[in-house]
Design a protein around this nucleic acid. Sequence first.
RNA 1: GAGACGUUAGCUCAGUUGGUUUAGAGCGCUUGCUUGACAGGCAAGAGGUCACUGGUUCGAUUCCAGUACGUCUCACCA
Length: 878
Amino acid sequence: MNIPSKYEPGKAESTWYSYWMKHGFFKSTPDDREPYTIVIPPPNVTGVLHMGHMLNNTIQDVLTRRARMQGKNACWVPGTDHASIATEAKVVAKLKEQGIEKKNLTRDEFLEHAWEWTHKHGGIILEQLKRLGASCDWDRTLFTMDDKRYDSVIKVFVDLHNKGLIYRGVRMVNWDPQARTAVSDEEVNYTEEKSKLYYVKYRIAGEDGFVTVATTRPETILGDTAVCANPDDKRYSHLKGKKVIVPMVDREVPFIFDSYVDKEFGTGCLKITPAHDINDYEIGIRHKLPSIDVFNEDGTMSEKAGMFIGVDRFQARELSEKELRKSGSLVKVENYNNKVGRSERTNAVIEPRLSMQWFLKMEKISKPALDAVMNGDVHLHPSKFRNLYRHWMENVHDWCISRQLWWGHRIPAWYFSNGEYVVAETEQEALELARKKSGNKSLSAKDLVQDEDVLDTWFSSWLWPITCFDGINDPENNDYKYYYPTNDLITAPEILFFWVARMIIAGYEYRGEKPFSNVYLTGLVRDQQRRKMSKSLGNSPEPIDLIEKYGADGVRVGMLLCSPAGNDLLYDDSLPEQGRNFANKIWNAFRLVKGWHVDDSIPQPESSEVAVKWMNEVLKKSVHEIDNNFKKFRISEALMSSYKLFWDEFSGWYLEIIKPEYQKPIDRKTFQATVDIFEKLAELMHSFMPFITEEIWQMLKERKDGESIMVTRLPESKRYNKELLASFENIKETVTAVRSVRKEKDIPNRETIELLIMADSSEYDNSLMKVVSKLCNLSSVEFVEKRREGAASFMIGTTQYFIPLEGKLDVEAELSKLRQDLEYDRGFLANVMKKLENERFVQNAPANVIDLERKKKSDAEARIKSLGERISHLEKLL
RNA sequence: GAGACGUUAGCUCAGUUGGUUUAGAGCGCUUGCUUGACAGGCAAGAGGUCACUGGUUCGAUUCCAGUACGUCUCACCA
């Protein structure tokens, strides 16, 4: 057989993925096995795969495949969300390119375009996940706006409204002028930005004097309805009851006092614009001030501004500066850094704006969700997020759930007269309610007007673990009862509040039970300068290109190796490269084993027999370690255990021991054992590297159509022989030491050497010594009582080893090495003695600790003694 | 401004209830090898007053307090 020396992943990937699909290995239906369920964090339906998705979905696939191989009924539910702001923005932009303005379309016409866009671009990201090897049950693919999910969201809205948890009201909201919608507090990011502080004079009405006010937003002067100082501020107390004149518009407004104002800041004098600042809004309420909204919804100046009408707010700022300067009202302008809120979606500067919105009361319904995390029903990994979670949940604000968009779940509220409204699942029900509420039996559907707004996208995804199994519409269905609560949720920490907390809230509200037991929060994928990877920065590689370059298995390993839970991953091409190299290592080990000829007539060498025994113990030990790591969600460490197991133990030691000489055959027993071990290793690594392990597993033994590594059972954790493992570590040290001697003395490998051990042969396992003989090409191993002259020597533990050199010994070099060792041992002994000579240590420390120190002492003394003897012998030779 | 978390090798991180032969891994680095599975490899090696200062203790990388620096979250500073 001619197997290429480099693993070529491309073909195996497409072959095996379609094989798995064809045989329905990803499918799950309820049965009597234990379920293992993950719901995917739904990506944006029209989005494409980025590095964060790669990391996140690799972890989900690893967990799913592993659970499946543990005999559980594994179900990973895929789906996408409608991402209302982002998708609507894209559709609007696309229409604009075609010369169509959204405002010239009816709602239905617009939605037709939006669906068309969704169908055209939708699902690309799911196809990309397949390239990664994702073992989702694709028959269950969902969308937050498909019929069942849509109806569920509407039902929940109506239900929460009927429970009195949803209300409508005028509030100061975060307005995104670019998307022309309100967004929730969680969707605003504050960043420190350079701006300017303008000092502006306000004349005092009927007097000559003036006050100076500092503001960062001179364009909002047009909406000022008061000027305010702290009541304790003596500088302004004479202005009590007076009025000041707002520059530019010459409006007379009252001078008021409120303790909110900081005397120390700026001039201690604050202009009040209740329509455009959350604090001013509150002061406005306290002092019953009128509010003047000077902006349109797109961020241009409104009619009410009285100036700069139709001009963008930032341009209006510049015009205001000019105008103020012209009229002599501008005292000075300073550079100033302040926090500016920007929209998560559009990056537009958020405009605080008064508007009528729908809110969900959070305080009461969030309580069980807080408890669930605090009492450990829901585990956050890493647990440091618990504090953060508690802090947020204890200070939770009402959630603004309405968005001024068309793409999404339309709010099921109907208005019928003077702002009166009813909330119902259908227009028909709404009509009946409206008739009842108004007492007007002749109301008809024509008299009802449905709310124009849609719900926040998160208001649909917070139900995701429930709606994935249609649990709102049909709470008694089998899927829901079987799969809910799900097991693990894998997501990014940035959406802990956006999404995770709210899912837990919904879980308790609608099922009385948590939605999942574990939340694994991945890190963020960053570049080498620690910048978050993003399209706009252009610092992110194209995931599919990476898969083509390094193979899906290589990329998966690369993403996992460097991503302990909650730690950011500093991406570098060397990561998938390491993954690819590992795949290649596995491939070449396979090539070696596959290339052997088996001869039934030759007996199994002793070294091979013991190697097989040892390898099986190592395997058991690794299985144990890997299990432990998975239990703690230390996935990168579980992978590292497998990596070292395969690379160091299996390839570096085991295969080297059992490897027959070039072109010589191998015995049947060893060969069979090796194939079995290889099979187990492949199974152990399958969840990390599904493709190469399947490729190899299929060729390792005769397989029938329909068999697959992905439906085999994982080796289970068992007790392992610690003594054998320890003696073998000794053997490894011996081999390493002999290799060093060969290297130092320049003795080529094919030249045999003798090894003398100054010890009693009964203390040594003869078959293990055969391993040393084979790996070091020894002609003999001899146990001696006395030191051998003219030999290289080394020490393992307290035992001395010699390799006769026949005059090749470099006495000077040997001496200097020995003296170095002696120095180390003396230092070590001094350390130990410091403890042992401390009476209080001997009195207080537990017996086993003291015994250990005594053992250290006697070992060190023994080593020092033999080193000293050898040194003095060698010195005589000089 | 308040709080949370962190600071261990050049980089990214482990270090499991304080004692495990004077601290571990992967990558990177250095040196030597085309040794017939693998140069995407093999072998050997260098590299750390465990941020700093105190405290508790027979004993601290590990526990406590403070300092410095960093990351994140929340918050109304014009």
